[in-house]
Amino acid sequence: MTTPDGRRSTPASARAGGALARVPAPLLFVVSGLTLYVGAAVAVGLFDTLGAPAVGWWRILLSAVVLLAWRRPWRRRWTGRELAWAAAFGIALSAMNVVFYVGIDHLPLGVAVALEFCGPVAVAAITGRGWAERGAILVAAGGVVLLAGVTLESGLPRQDVVIGLAAIGAAAVCWAGYIVLGKRVAGAGSGIDSLAVGMAAGALVFAPVFARTAGDVVTDPRVLVFLLVVAICSSVVPYVLDQVVLRRVGTAAFSVLTALLPATAVVVGAVVLRQIPTWPEIAGLALVSGAIAMTARARV
């Protein structure tokens, strides 16, 4: 492709993902999921110090700093439309992170991830065609009802359950927006650069709410190091891999691949957080993952 000034260039996500082009998309998703939820497990340990929403914002802020330093997107000539789409993408991503962390502060990690999958299921059902995509909504609904019912009867405080379910519902909506907007910026050939710009925009939008926690972070190097680990594991690595995969598959197929993620969330939750799932929870996870797999209409 050519840049706006007429020079030949290689798409940013293609340059970053050239070495990954021969790696099967499902394997990339396994790596993405493991790093994503290991980062989430580390983040849980910071909730008592900063609060779950603030940890989500710091994750975005530090990820933006890392990506901006790596990509230096200001060297690229941007149009107003490209910047607007990148900003919308980043704001959806930032909102998803903030409310997801609120969710996992009140619900087990595996359950929260499975419930959040309503977003990808909806994207796959809307963008796909045929009975399988429509039927997937019913299957996913069964899984969600089962998981929500188990959670309500789990002995957790009712207020925690209500807050957790509401936060994860909001995260599901944001995840759907992330997939749709992410495919658009990835298809434009500026995926990782747009990711850097978008994360910076998202961090700025939420800064008035969370910047007050800066004093707690800069005065405690240990907290800052852990936040950086969260940012790299849960944002930089998985979202860069997402941009690589999104250039190779459609939105429906991308949503199908996310069926691999609940299993990784359960494994990480069990090993790191000692959140052992019950059999009804496993059944609900299987239903949600099966619903996503049902929507497969494209090769991955």
Rank of each mutant, 00 (worst) to 15 (best):
V205Q: 02
E133Y: 00
R75N: 07
V173R: 00
L165H: 01
L138D: 05
V98I: 15
W175Y: 12
V99R: 03
V65H: 06
G142C: 10
G119N: 10
V197M: 03
G202T: 06
S94E: 08
V113T: 15
V65E: 09
A64G: 10
A166I: 13
A84Y: 10
L61V: 13
A167M: 09
S154T: 07
L115V: 12
G187Y: 02
E82D: 12
L83K: 01
V161R: 01
V123T: 09
I137W: 06
R184V: 03
I104D: 04
R134Q: 14
L83R: 09
G189H: 03
L195H: 01
A148H: 06
W175K: 00
A87M: 09
A95C: 14
R76F: 15
W74T: 05
I137V: 15
L138W: 10
M199D: 02
G80P: 06
L195R: 00
V111P: 02
P73A: 07
L195A: 04
A170F: 12
S194R: 00
L109C: 06
A172E: 04
V185K: 01
W74S: 08
G143P: 08
R75E: 12
I126K: 00
V139M: 08
L109N: 03
G191K: 00
Y178Q: 12
W175L: 10
A188C: 04
F206E: 11
I60L: 05
A196S: 10
L146F: 10
S190H: 06
G130D: 09
G143Q: 05
E153I: 00
P108V: 00
D193I: 02
C174Q: 07
M199V: 03
G191W: 01
R158M: 12
R77A: 14
A170S: 13
I179M: 11
G128T: 12
F206L: 15
V162M: 11
D160K: 11
